[in-house]
Design a protein around this nucleic acid. Structure first.
Length: 465
DNA sequence: TTTTGAGTTGTTCGA
DNA sequence: GTCGAACAACTCAAA
């Protein structure tokens, strides 16, 4: 390819799809599809998220090859690599879909400045959210509403801004590009563990969800119900599905569909808040709530991480996370509440664990949800709302099926006993093959004591604010 | 301009 | 067993 072609460069990041992608389809002509494998976020991810990313890249590469091109994957710091690639390939313009994290914002600003100083055009879009940050503002303050319901009302009533999607893109084959020899090319590796990725699979998941979405309001809180939630979180995180596509396909023709699409507004809300207040990554919205007297308890933290707290529903959730990189939403709340309100451990330590382990981790969502549970964020749960892990287990896993799946050493306990093994008569424990303290831990904390302790710690923090 | 009502996800206690 | 109150404090928008 002669360099006089001056291709358009599309930098893929959290939008690993060709469908409904404004950064991809918003222009005409010869185009290079680029992904930069940035060592910093790569090493911050656990093996499951790494493996899923590799599968998505492989799949995107295949889709681009079917169009006569391919995906160019380069390794290194994008601030260095993207301008170098644009120069080496003689690019006329570079486009991408913007991202919300502080790291991404600083990175993208540096890349854009470097490109512009080289005379290269930069075009950014918001292809990973329904509404762009800034599109929803409280009338009185001009800022993102601090309460979800007003945000959602406006979110639902606001017309979507235009995504130009009719570009006549012809994708180039990276192997034929001159100047490639000077760039740090990384081969697109096979997913080593058989993980399947890509937007076709994501669309199949979305279509399958149509069969169950009407039951969402009734089934969403049951972790023992594998089809009660959509399992689309990682597709939204990696962008193998566009949130607008999800909202359009699901629609609002039934109560269940409307309730599900409303969740996309929560996703936008946390993203918009994060763009406005990037310090939410590490600081409470309310002054004072950064100064809770958290306990320094490495053993408690480790018991929580490994699913050895002695509370079956908590341990089941943490083990599901360790085994799959995913956890049911209801159980995310229960396990997070247990860390913060029962162990009185700083929510940031739990957030860091989820950050590494979750295949669907994205910083604004992770932080927003942790701060919600901790009662420190915008429109958060009141601090006195403390989940009782026994009641939550009995209510949302009434047959113990979820616990039996992930905590198999408790399998033989009755439905009535499975959420409270420490209250089971010795003979029944023996029959079930359980020795507390050996085959399964005693509870590492007494819930009633912990509840009082947390109310006192939060009360003190508020009192001194 | 001021007031008022409403607000994802809960638990405990006492009548 | 069921039921209502209490557990805070604040934002936002409608009246």
């Amino acid at each position: 390819m002669p360099s006089s072609v001056e291709p358009h460069l599309v930098w893929f990041r959290r939008d690993l799809r060709l469908d409904d992608n404004p950064a991809w389809s918003g222009h005409d002509g010869p185009t290079v599809a680029l992904f930069v494998l940035d060592p910093r976020p790569w090493h911050a991810a656990g093996p499951r998220r790494q493996s899923l990313l590799a599968a998505h890249l492989r799949s995107l590469d295949t889709a681009l090859r079917q169009r006569g091109g391919g995906l160019l994957v380069l390794g290194g710091d994008p601030v260095d690599v993207v301008p170098r690639a644009a120069a080496a390939l003689g690019a006329r313009a570079v486009s991408w879909n913007a991202d919300v994290s502080g790291y991404a914002q600083r990175r993208d600003a540096a890349v854009a400045a470097a490109l512009r100083s080289d005379g290269i055009e930069v075009a950014t879009h918001w292809g990973t959210l329904v509404h762009a940050p800034g599109a929803i503002r409280a009338k009185s303050t001009g800022t993102v509403p601090r309460v979800f319901t007003p945000f959602h009302k406006q979110w639902a009533a606001t017309e979507w801004d235009d995504w130009t999607l009719d570009g006549d893109v012809s994708v180039l084959d990276p192997a034929t590009l001159p100047g490639l020899a000077h760039l740090p090319v990384v081969p697109v590796a096979e997913a080593s563990d058989g993980t399947v990725g890509g937007e076709d699979v994501a669309h199949a998941r979305l279509r399958r969800w149509l069969d169950d979405v009407d039951g969402y309001p009734d089934r969403r809180d049951r972790p023992d119900d594998a089809e009660g939630t959509s399992h689309l979180s990682a597709d939204l995180r990696f962008g193998t599905l566009s949130p607008r596509t999800v909202a359009t396909v699901i629609g609002d023709s039934t109560a269940g569909r409307g309730a599900f699409v409303r969740q996309l507004a929560w996703r936008d809300w946390y993203a918009h808040l994060f763009v406005e207040r990037p310090e939410l990554a590490t600081h409470a919205m309310a002054p004072g709530l950064d100064d809770i007297a958290w306990l320094d308890d490495p053993e408690g933290l480790e018991a929580w991480r490994t699913g050895r707290t002695g509370y079956p529903i908590v341990d089941a959730g943490m083990r599901e996370l360790a085994a799959t990189g995913w956890m049911h939403n209801r159980v995310r709340m229960i396990t997070a509440s247990f860390l913060v309100k029962d162990l009185l451990i700083d929510w940031r330590l739990g957030e860091a664990h989820f950050r590494r382990e979750l295949v669907d981790f994205e910083v604004s969502q992770n932080v927003g949800n942790w701060q919600w549970v901790a009662g420190t964020g915008p429109d958060a749960a009141p601090y006195f709302r403390i989940f009782n892990p026994i009641m939550q287990g009995r209510k949302f896993d009434p047959d113990g099926a979820y616990v039996r799946r992930w905590v198999p050493e408790l399998r033989e306990l009755s439905d009535r006993d499975i959420h409270t093994p420490w209250e089971v008569a010795p003979l029944d424990l023996a029959v079930a093959g359980i020795t507390l303290g050996e085959t399964y831990p005693w509870p590492i904390v007494d819930h009633a004591m912990a509840r009082d302790r947390t109310l006192a710690a939060y009360g003190a923090a508020k009192g001194t604010a």
